[in-house]
Simulated scan of single mutants.
Amino acid sequence: MKSALVTGANKGIGLEVAKQLAQQGFFVYLGSRKLESGEAAVQQLCAAGLTTVEAVQLDVTKPESIRAARAAIGEKTSVLDVLVNNAGISGSMSQTARHATLEQLRTVFETNLFGVVGVTQAFLDLLEKASQPRIVNVSTAMASLTTYADLDNRNFDYRFPVYQSSKTALNMYTVNLAHELRDTAFKVNAVCPGYTKTDFTGHQGTSTAEEAGQRLVKYALLGPDGPTGQYFSEEYFPAPANCPW
């Protein structure tokens, strides 16, 4: 049975990704900052008939938590087929490029970039043992430099420089990791799940968690001829006029 680790999987898009991977026959480790939240998510999936799931305490901002999660999963499997780096935070959306503090920047980057790097590097040895290892980094259309370089387009007046910068950096990390692994069986991609109705967006959006999960799982299941080192966004969107996030 193939195995997968999904970070930030106790609710929202992460939980949906875990659900869909379990439906595809994977044994899924649900990374959750609070173990009790992860265990509650596992109970929810088990009640739906999906029993190949297990909660793992994983705070991506804490190296000791990453090491403990790697040790715990390593005791149960010697191979990891899929890693979905879903855990992310928005920070305060009132931050501006002129006034955001270094502490605010560090807090968001700690989860959205450094957390991804830490988890990926910790589990790379297990992924290397898979026949078709896949890494999916959850990004956003709001990280597009090309789009947001259009300073006069009123559709893009909503700008969240701290959050957006962290995800743009994540995209660059993704393509560089893919470049280093280009001669292997790895597929490493960044994917935008879309403007999704979850806690993250105040339950506003144009996509359901199920639709967002499908967009991400597609790249976790890529065949050997699939793309790598790319960014994908199936639902391109400008921030709506009443954007709460």
Rank of each mutant, 00 (worst) to 15 (best):
Q23Y: 03
Q23C: 01
Q23H: 01
Q24K: 12
Q24A: 15
Q24I: 09
Q24S: 14
Q24V: 05
Q24H: 12
G25Y: 08
G25R: 09
G25F: 11
G25S: 07
F26E: 05
F26T: 04
F26L: 09
F26C: 04
F27M: 14
F27Y: 14
V28Q: 01
V28L: 05
V28F: 02
V28S: 02
V28A: 01
Y29D: 08
L30F: 05
L30Y: 04
L30A: 08
L30R: 00
L30V: 07
G31M: 00
G31P: 04
S32V: 05
S32T: 09
S32Q: 10
S32I: 12
R33E: 02
R33P: 10
K34G: 04
K34Q: 12
K34H: 06
L35A: 11
L35H: 03
L35N: 02
E36I: 11
E36T: 15
E36V: 13
S37T: 10
S37D: 10
S37L: 03
S37Y: 05
G38R: 03
E39I: 13
A40V: 08
A40R: 05
A40E: 02
A40D: 07
A40H: 01
A40T: 08
A40C: 05
A41Q: 10
A41H: 07
V42G: 02
V42S: 00
Q43S: 13
Q43A: 11
Q43H: 11
Q43I: 12
Q43K: 13
Q43G: 12
Q43L: 12
Q44A: 14
L45S: 02
L45G: 07
L45E: 01
C46A: 13
C46S: 14
C46K: 13
C46H: 14
C46L: 11
A47Y: 01
A47K: 10
A47V: 09
A47C: 08
A48K: 09
A48T: 07
A48H: 06
A48M: 13
A48L: 12
A48F: 03
A48P: 09
A48C: 10
A48D: 11
A48E: 13
G49I: 09
G49R: 08
G49K: 06
G49E: 10
G49S: 10
L50R: 01
L50T: 06
L50I: 12
T51L: 13
T52W: 11
T52L: 15
T52G: 14
